[in-house]
Amino acid sequence: MLRIHFTSHDLQNIRVARQPDPLWELVCSVCRLDTGQGPLDFGHWRRAARERLSGDAVASRALRPLRTLIPAAGYIPDFLTPPVTGGGLPAGLDQLRHTPRTRLVRDLTRLADSRPVPDWAGSLGRPGGDSLRSLANALGIYFRALLEPYWPHIRTAVANDVDLRSRDLLDGGTQALLDGLRPLARWNPPVLEVEYPIERDLHLEGRGLLLVPSFFCWRRPTALADPGLDPVLVYPVGKAPLTVARAADDGLVRLLGRTRCAVLAEVAGRHARTTSEVAAAVGIALPSASYQIGVLRDGGLVASRREGKCVLHTATALGQRLLGGDSGLRPGTGAAVGP
């Protein structure tokens, strides 16, 4: 059990990350890769990833040091998941490259207490060495090979969860937000009790708490091991299986193009999206988003309606089917939940 202790100031300083964090998703996905965990949620991704690794020597080599540092269970070094900034993968890798040596030594010493650590890991951060840069490069290669093709689907699932948390906060304040984390956590004021593999107390002491919704987190939330770091709680979002990848990895992307595929996945979430919301989520200019939505609408994949001053967009039944929605589940929905 993880018990997170709030003060009145902490309750005023709860935030929710608006987008999936690439390094948290990467770390959680490595944990899922070599296990049978979440066969419905991650089975297709796991099979596709293993197939990709068998034919991609560069990605396969990049995974080796990650497996050393990221066990499927137990302690994972905190420096692999630097503070969430919303700046995407480049910002996260830049923070990792500049990890202070004192933190590297502390984290790797703790890792060595639970499992063997190879010599190359001990050289991370050594003055004049390039091991930390090589590790950052390996993280980037892994992400581009095994996560980037699925990123629109992951982003949609997280956006749906953020919508849910936002409604809870607007309707009932921080109490409703924390109550809404059930069954993963129980709000027993002033303590948030979280299912956790060890007994632990985390005192926020006025620093607040950042909630980080995650696709690859499974079954229960996770947190940084060092209580002195800025507190975060990474928790699993509700999701449909990554069946979108069946098409998006090659067929649908070849048909629509990667940007248009990302736009379609974004409007296929639980709630209708405005053009500006689609542009921000996909990372394209507003005129480009408007154009892409228009093309998808002309093709019968997107429906648009005006509400007041806004135009809202949703995926049609045909659009849902192209995204792997034959089961009736939209991307980002479903009952399966886990870290």
Rank of each mutant, 00 (worst) to 15 (best):
P231N: 02
P231D: 06
P231E: 00
P231Q: 01
V232T: 01
V232L: 00
V232R: 05
L233R: 00
V234K: 01
V234Q: 01
V234C: 01
V234R: 08
Y235R: 01
Y235K: 10
Y235N: 04
P236F: 02
P236G: 03
V237P: 10
V237T: 15
V237Y: 06
G238C: 11
G238A: 07
K239A: 13
K239I: 00
K239H: 13
K239L: 14
A240S: 14
A240D: 09
A240M: 14
A240Y: 07
A240E: 08
P241N: 09
P241H: 04
L242Q: 02
L242N: 05
L242Y: 04
L242F: 06
L242M: 07
T243P: 09
T243K: 14
V244I: 00
V244E: 03
A245E: 12
A245M: 12
A245N: 00
A245Y: 02
A245I: 03
R246T: 06
R246D: 02
A247Y: 03
A248M: 11
A248D: 03
D249F: 07
D249Y: 04
D250N: 04
D250H: 08
D250Q: 00
D250L: 10
D250S: 05
D250F: 05
D250M: 10
G251I: 03
G251V: 10
G251R: 12
G251Q: 09
G251E: 04
G251F: 04
L252Q: 00
L252H: 09
V253Q: 10
V253M: 13
R254S: 13
R254Q: 13
L255W: 15
L256N: 09
L256F: 06
L256E: 08
G257N: 12
G257M: 15
R258F: 08
R258I: 12
R258K: 15
T259F: 10
T259M: 14
R260W: 12
R260Q: 14
R260N: 13
A262W: 04
A262F: 01
A262T: 05
A262E: 10
V263A: 11
V263M: 14
L264E: 01
L264P: 03
A265M: 05
A265H: 00
V267D: 10
V267P: 11
V267E: 08
V267T: 10
A268C: 12
A268T: 07
A268W: 07
A268D: 01
A268P: 09
A268H: 06
G269P: 08
G269A: 04
G269M: 05
R270A: 15
R270D: 07
H271P: 01
A272V: 13
A272W: 11
R273N: 10
T275M: 11
S276F: 07
E277I: 05
